[in-house]
């Protein structure tokens, strides 16, 4: 069958690449995570030991790993809702029937999304400077004392969250805007005939109609925020006091700084499991909410 061969032939190059450079490494990561692959093993493979689940066990007992988990959890738990709220609010504003120049505003809000993360992180590092940064300068005008954004362990992660929200909210805004477009206009007209206020419209029509989009967007955003890495790498190098070490940053240091590839692979899998668990939880919660 000619078409059958052609189908395979057409799909083969891409499948080959995906298999060799994605599936094989993922499976090998699972195997490596059961060994103590380290610098000694890199120098001489006879120094490699199979250690079973030891890497996982050690990680689960390592305070530094848990700190990374807690930091990432904080980043996700605060960053995602903030980010979604900003996206939704800006989508509602830009989408409003009363708004002029909505194309301009949409582009302005979206611009940070396409910028290079490393470059704008460098920019923000200067904006956040304790003594010469514009953010503290602006805050001083409303009577707030200078905050040591990237030097104070309590403020470093919030500063990175602010930066991440600024960088990312435009992406979900676009998705929300499309979803808002697809809400039938007559729903709003009917509500207005019933004398509903704008806030009631939002609560009774817009938000319920957006629920599927909200779920999807929050799943994607959570998965993305779990993969925090470049921001701390550029802005704080994990400091101060390890307060910005994310799970992925931890994996990077463990793997490519100290070359404990076994333990780093275990970190990668634990991160994967965390994302899976949170996603499952989100789906479950939304289903329960819909059932009610």
């Amino acid at each position: 069958m000619r078409v059958g061969y052609a189908g395979w032939a057409f799909a083969a190059p891409a499948l080959l690449i995906i298999t060799v450079f994605f599936f094989v490494p993922v499976l090998s990561a699972l195997i490596v995570s059961l060994t103590d692959f380290d610098l000694y093993a890199l120098a001489d493979i006879r120094n490699l030991r199979f250690v079973g689940l030891d890497n996982y066990r050690q990680l689960l007992h390592a305070p530094q790993f848990w700190r990374a988990v807690a930091n990432t959890g904080y980043f996700v738990a605060v960053g995602v809702p903030l980010s979604l709220a900003a996206s939704l609010a800006s989508a509602l504003l830009v989408n409003s029937r009363l708004a002029y120049f909505s194309a301009f505003f949409r582009t302005a809000f979206f611009a940070p999304v396409v910028t290079t993360l490393v470059a704008v992180a460098v920019v923000w590092r200067y904006l956040l400077h304790t003594r010469y940064g514009l953010i503290n300068y602006a805050l001083a005008h409303v009577g707030i004392h200078p905050i040591d954004w990237l030097g104070d362990p309590h403020w470093a992660l919030p500063a990175i969250i602010l930066f991440a929200v600024w960088k990312n909210f435009g992406y979900n805004m676009v998705i929300f805007m499309a979803a808002l477009h697809s809400i039938p206009v007559d729903l709003y007209e009917a509500a207005r005939l019933d004398g509903a206020s704008r806030w009631q419209e939002l609560g009774r029509i817009t938000l319920p109609m957006l629920r599927p989009t909200l779920l999807l967007v929050s799943i994607l955003t959570v998965a993305g925020y779990f993969q925090l890495f470049a921001e701390p790498y550029v802005m704080t190098q994990g400091g101060p006091l390890q307060s910005t070490v994310s799970v992925l940053y931890f994996m990077y240091e463990e793997g490519f700084k100290w070359w404990n590839l076994g333990s780093a692979s275990a970190v990668a899998f634990l991160l994967f499991l965390m994302i899976l668990a949170v996603t499952a939880l989100q789906v479950r919660l939304t289903r329960d909410a819909q059932a009610r």
Binding site: P25, V26, A29, V32, G255, S265, A268, L271, F272
Partner: peptide, 9 residues
């Protein structure tokens, strides 16, 4: 699957 899982191998 996050791409970082594949990164080390």
């Amino acid at each position: 699957i996050p791409s970082q899982v594949a990164m080390l191998p």
